[in-house]
Amino acid sequence: MAFFSGENMTGGYGGADIISSCTISVNRGEIVAILGPNGAGKSTAMKAMLGLLNLKSGKISIDGKDISKLTPQNRVREGISFVPQTKNVFTGLSVQENLEMGAFLREERIEEIINEIYELFPVLKEKSSQIVGELSGGQRQQVALGRALMTKPTVLMLDEPTAGVSPIVMDELFDHILKVKKTNVAIIMVEQNAKQALSIADRGYVLVTGENKFSGTGKELLNDPEVRRSFLGG
């Protein structure tokens, strides 16, 4: 039994089903990449697990507990955190305030957690009182990650974290994601850059028209001739 999983998820936004009996699971300290062509339902699958989408059938569970009926806010309390693809920081607030907002629901003192984030991303400590809108793209992504980690999540979901960033920033970002992984967090990320994503992912799922098409470890998928041919450009 995986730590966090969505099993046989079927549903869509009112109209036709976008995902059908799609299954995704992840364990703590593991990175799972969801891959697939455009419109395959990658983001939808992730939103379903977050609770932003009403499923017709399927079951979402974390640590053995069924959370299928919980609202997104309550899933946050269960330890799931999410970094959206765009607009994932408060651009007008300082770095420190962004982190504080990430821990909005926490009642206890949050200085410790903020210090942990600063240890993870030292550059944020330097810039702690700077307005996020003035930071570079790579630094913003760190703020976004840091904000999401403020809830001390056990599961972190990233929606196309590398979309629109330069290759250098992408490498840097993957380093940060690996660092987060070391803190024993389960990570699911939706990715367009399949090759790069699989290079750091432990496992990957390839979705096609909302269904699981292939799955396996990063290496397996990278070496699978069919996957290579259809999704990795030969």
């Binding site: 997104p72 946050v76 999410f82 607009k87 408060f90 607030l93 907002m101 629901l105 904000r147």
Partner: peptide, 11 residues
Amino acid sequence: DNEDLALLSGI
């Protein structure tokens, strides 16, 4: 600043 993210943060 960012309504969606605020909601995600539990505000």
